[in-house]
């Protein structure tokens, strides 16, 4: 098992380099450059050339890449061309906001989704099942930013229970986390239901009933335990999605975060910032999948044996 984790970790290194090449090429393929944002009105072509040379943007792309990757590997993510501060500082300032939002909404997705899924599966084809599946469907289909606006309207503006926007204590986190988390909860609920119903019909469940085990113990200890695998996969993949995809929510709630930082940098072609935050997000997806694999092999002895 440890050998497997070690091998998987080593594999992250080549993946990292492939990502840097892709991210670097993509951003430089987009027309426009940061210099235009820096130049004031009335500046000449000479001013432009001077700036290009100052930032090394006159060099061939592959030299630019090598310079950047060399510094990046040494732990220097460079300077923001526009903001004039180290990219690392910007990332480390914004990351906790994104992580907190991401993890809390993931937890909401997990607990709300699993609960709805269990209720639906146990009460299959009853009115309770239909109601919770409609809630799940709404969760999947309603866009997070719209839900965010409605939640602000109800809980912040009308009821004044929670702050409208900004960041700070947990009270600032609740509405954005619900907005992002409910979508995942809908997905998790539907997958939990389907997966549990599939397990329901398996032979071992019949034997559990024949053993005289109580219905509740069978549902939680056995059926849910077996049905949880696809849910873990979905949540692992969602971790990356939430970290990167929370942009609209960060904007709706006026929160700092990697998403809104990336968006601003993108509009201004602030290459170093865009590159670093894209790499952060892609690595988050990959590490999410990696963690999923490890949890998976702990949860399912059959998978564990495959990796021996």
């Amino acid at each position: 098992m440890w050998l497997y984790i070690f091998r998987r970790t080593l594999l992250l290194i080549p993946i990292f380099f492939v990502i840097t090449v892709v991210v670097f090429s993509l951003i430089h393929l987009v027309p426009g450059d940061p210099i235009s944002s820096l130049l004031g009105p009335g500046s000449t072509l000479d001013d432009r050339d001077a700036l290009l040379i100052a930032y090394g943007l006159d060099q061939p792309l592959w030299i630019q890449y090598l310079r950047w990757i060399k510094d990046f590997v040494m732990g220097d993510m460079g300077q923001s061309i526009i903001e004039k501060q180290p990219v690392a500082d910007m990332i480390f300032y914004n990351m906790p906001f994104t992580l907190r939002l991401g993890l809390l909404s993931l937890a909401i997705s997990f607990f709300v989704g699993i609960t709805l899924g269990i209720i639906s599966a146990v009460k299959k084809n009853t009115i309770i099942d239909y109601i919770s599946m409609i809630i799940a469907l709404l969760g999947v289909t309603v866009p997070a930013f719209w839900l965010g606006l409605i939640l602000i309207l109800i809980f912040a503006v009308e009821l004044s229970w929670l702050p409208v926007s900004g960041s700070g204590g947990i009270e600032y986190l609740i509405l954005p986390a619900i907005s992002v988390g409910l979508g995942g909860a809908g997905l998790v609920a539907r997958i939990t239901r389907v997966s549990m119903l599939e397990i329901y019909n398996q032979d071992f469940v019949l034997l559990l009933h024949a053993k005289g085990i109580s219905q509740n113990a069978i549902v939680i200890k056995h059926i849910l335990r077996n049905a949880i695998m696809p849910v873990i996969t979905i949540l692992g993949l969602r971790l990356g999605f939430i970290l990167g995809g929370a942009v609209s929510i960060e904007i709706v709630f006026g929160r700092p975060g990697i998403g809104s930082m990336l968006l601003t940098a993108l509009f201004r072609r602030d290459y170093p910032v865009v590159q670093a935050s894209l790499i952060f997000l892609t690595m988050a997806v990959i590490i999410g999948a990696f963690i999923t694999d490890i949890i998976y092999s702990y949860a399912d002895p059959r998978v564990r044996d495959l990796y021996k």
Binding site: D203, F204, L206, L207, L208, A210, K211, G212, S214, D300
Partner: peptide, 24 residues
């Protein structure tokens, strides 16, 4: 019935290959 099943009357199922919970 829950306390009779498995205690006084027990059941040995048709297919042993699939009658055990795979994760325990």
């Amino acid at each position: 019935m829950q306390s009779i099943r498995g205690a006084e009357i027990s059941f040995i199922p048709q297919n042993p290959m699939t009658s055990l919970d795979p994760v325990y």
